[in-house]
Write a protein that binds this DNA or RNA. Structure first.
Lengths: 118, 118
DNA sequence: TCCATTGTTCGCCCAATGGCGAACACTCTA
DNA sequence: TAGAGTGTTCGCCATTGGGCGAACAATGGA
């Protein structure tokens, strides 16, 4: 089973691929608002624990419906925190850890450290 | 003009002093939400440029009424970012820079750096 | 003792946000 | 080609948050 490049994936798909925002184009306000939500922080933490492209959208343990979940993923994409790739009917996720860290040094660490329950 | 201690101020005042929250008791969510607002970020930046106890509440250049401004100051107090002291009819302000930095390393720097307009 | 100054509180409005179910679109397999 | 699985979009609703003016409270000076 040879690994497919993102280009191959996009070519084979009739689906519009997810729209991403580069962390460098994200304002501090957008970043803070994205991370201010507890569900999204939970998603970010789960993503950080897993490897890149390991987790599918439906496989997260959050107490919301898939409609709400889909919206949260969109917010994470727009804030430069999340990259997504289509793989068949599923959508794989990757936390843009290094890029986001370069844009907002220390911010992601505060969320991942989670020395409190918030 | 001898400097008055906070104790002397409080003793001479019939006013209930402002309620403060220690940064150590502040959740990450509260901190992020406090700094997610552009008016409050502007206040924090002005406070950082000025010296401790230098600025009075009314002396900030923000496009809101004093009612709204008062609410913003309350939020900053509750998030451990602001300390206030009564001085006559005025209220003096101090950014709790070191304490907040110890609680949320790097977060305040992101706001003060303001390498973008947000 | 009045009154201008300073700041808070209250009630109200409006916009933004998060939540949901239902419907839709796409992919892959049977 | 039918259907199961996955995820997005579309209303809709409830809550939250920021904004305002008006009224109130406290201080200090005239």
């Amino acid at each position: 089973m040879a690994a497919q490049t993102p280009q191959q994936q996009a070519a084979a798909s009739h689906r519009t691929p997810p729209v991403h925002t580069d962390p460098d184009a994200v304002s501090l306000e957008t970043a803070l608002l994205a991370l201010a939500d507890p569900v999204r922080r939970s998603l970010v933490r789960e993503l950080a624990r897993a490897g890149d492209w390991e987790r599918t959208c439906g496989g997260f343990d959050v107490p919301v419906t898939k409609a709400t979940l889909s919206r949260h993923f969109a917010v994470l994409r727009e804030s430069g925190l999340l990259e997504q790739r289509d793989a068949g009917p599923k959508r794989l996720n990757r936390l843009r850890r290094a890029e986001f860290e370069a844009r907002f040094p220390g911010l992601l660490d505060l969320v991942l450290r989670q020395d409190d329950g918030s």
